[in-house]
């Protein structure tokens, strides 16, 4: 009898959850999550610091840190070279056009990654900056190497960033060499896919992909990554390219949020 009651109770709960999900899809119950995440952000930060401390006490840590700092410096310089190249290209193109308005420079807020998405079907990170630090929803997040993603949920002291490798992410991009445009979508294996590349366009592995600057979320000419293969899906009227992101998104520790 008791067993029967508990089966009924469980079935009712499962159905209630399904109904909750269906309603949730119309009016997302995100506030519960944002508040819970905010409340948990301090212990999470503490936990992250503890992990960093343990990492710091491991052998050869100072050498590894120095190596990392030097690599970061190289990446920063490479990024600067990329920016200069992009500016040079832009300059050449703009000689023909008068009255072109250059994209406004942006200011950033540095943030630390304190957590990651525990599920396997989405790719997001949790950062330790929120509304208090002027981090806002739908603002781009970058790193020294390139584009990271965009802010999707903001609490007072924390925010959730949807990575460009998430299957729900969509970014307007162009190929640096020939200015061919397309849409960048995330793929579950940690890479991205650039779709809507016209069949007659000259695209090859090794080409660099930049943000197109269309819309209001992502500024123009931020490095996204490099094409590793180009292919065509049967029955489609466009090609697609698989892209390796410039930043190793799964090993991110610090990011910059655009304001």
């Amino acid at each position: 009898m008791r067993n029967k009651k508990s089966v009924i109770f469980r079935s009712v709960l499962v159905i209630a959850l399904l109904v909750f999900l269906a309603l949730n899809s119309r009016t997302p119950a995100n506030q519960i999550r944002v508040d819970s995440l905010d409340a948990l952000s301090s212990p999470l930060k503490l936990l992250d610091s503890a992990v960093s401390f343990v990492k710091g006490s491991m052998p050869f840590y100072s050498l590894r840190e120095e190596n990392r700092a030097l690599r970061d410096r190289i990446n920063l310089l490479n990024r600067k070279i990329e920016t200069y190249k992009a500016i040079q290209d832009e300059n050449d193109r703009l000689k023909d056009f008068l009255g072109f308005r250059k994209a406004a420079p942006y200011t950033t807020v540095p943030a630390q990654v304190i957590g990651r998405d525990p599920s396997n079907w989405s790719n997001s990170i949790i950062i330790d900056k929120g509304l208090k630090d002027f981090v806002a929803q739908n603002k781009a997040v970058i790193s020294a190497r390139g584009l990271v993603g965009r802010v999707v949920e903001v609490g007072k002291n924390s925010a959730k960033v949807l990575l460009v490798t998430d299957p729900n992410s969509r970014v307007g991009v162009i190929i640096q060499r020939n200015r061919q445009g397309g849409i960048l979508i995330g793929r579950a294996d940690g890479k991205c896919k650039m779709i809507y590349i016209s069949l007659d366009s000259d695209v090859a592995p090794g080409d660099r992909v930049l943000t197109a600057g269309l819309g209001t979320v992502f500024p123009k000419d931020i490095l996204v990554g490099e094409i590793i293969s180009v292919d065509k899906e049967p029955g489609r009227l466009y090609k697609y390219a698989v892209i390796k992101t410039a930043e190793e998104l799964m090993k991110l520790e610090e990011v910059l949020c655009l304001r």
Binding site: V14, L17, S25, I32, R33, L37, P118
Partner: peptide, 23 residues
């Protein structure tokens, strides 16, 4: 529900799926 707090998804998705798996 623990997973749902930190994941980017509709709140309750993981609770529903893991609850079903448990049953």
């Amino acid at each position: 529900f623990g997973k749902d707090i930190f994941a980017f998804d509709y709140f309750g998705t993981n609770a529903f799926i893991l609850g079903l798996v448990g049953i």
